[in-house]
Design a binder for these strands. Structure first.
Lengths: 145, 145
DNA sequence: CAGCATCCGGATGGATACTG
DNA sequence: CAGTATCCATCCGGATGCTG
């Protein structure tokens, strides 16, 4: 009997790689920053503690589902602290931990890179798209096939 | 007639914010780094030009669909150059542009942060999860409701 | 060799309604 | 006020098969 089909071997390799990827520290950071709201929340908390409702206004576009979900996830990773003050109504404050601040500096680095290099990126895009369109037009004119 | 319902107003606000987000330079960078393969590809190209097939081996887990798609996207943004050498079989090399290298340094920054701080993150997670479980257990023991 | 086209499942995330 | 719970659309990305 054959040991393993090529497909099985490939899938195994892929799974191994997925595992490796999941453990790659750099990837985990990028995943965290890559999600839609984490970076925004870190920035919103940069200047000090904020209440839940403050955050939902500060980061205007977020649904309360994603707000809560993101906050929980950031809290779990030790990037921010959640402090509940009992009473009616309840009051909940969120505050960056030192770890959170250190990650914030990473966000700022991206932001800085963006400000200095995005113009180049946009220029490159414009060139690329113009060329692509030109090629498409030429094709149409030459009556391909 | 009423000018606009509350729902319409909210949706409009959300759309405005989405637009603003789409233009936020920092977000665009994070989106690029956040996607599954861009950072890996930048790293794979760090030491010099690579052929398509080299890349597909170097970044072992990627499907050729995502490989091509990511490369195209990076090329469009001016982060790498695609050079086709005619012949049979065809040969295609990819190479980082200076802009690509500069973004690579951002990837490295994340990587560095990860190496120095991920242990803290994992510790925080362990604490969080342990606490959560403890709370759940207590709830069960007290026979809630 | 270096792709492109198509199909498809699962995760992401938004809208809405309800709760302590 | 600060959430939780549910439903649902979209989209990312993988598998497969075909091409110059």
């Amino acid at each position: 009997m054959a040991t393993q089909t090529a497909a099985q071997l490939r899938e195994e390799a892929r799974r191994d790689y997925a595992l490796w990827l999941a453990e790659c520290p750099g990837r985990q950071v990028l995943d965290r920053l890559g999600d839609k709201w984490s970076a925004l929340l870190l920035r919103a908390l940069a200047d000090g503690p904020r209440r839940y409702s403050d955050l939902s206004r500060l980061v205007a576009g977020v649904s309360q589902k994603m707000l809560t979900q993101s906050l929980r996830s950031l809290e779990r990773d030790g990037l921010l602290n959640r402090e509940v003050t009992a009473g009616v109504p309840v009051r909940v404050d969120y505050e960056l931990t030192p770890l959170g601040h250190s990650m914030l500096s990473l966000v700022d680095a991206s932001s800085t890179w963006a400000r200095t290099h995005m113009p180049e990126v946009h220029a490159a895009r414009a060139r690329y798209d113009a060329d692509a369109e030109a090629r498409t037009d030429a094709e149409a004119r030459d009556g391909k096939a």
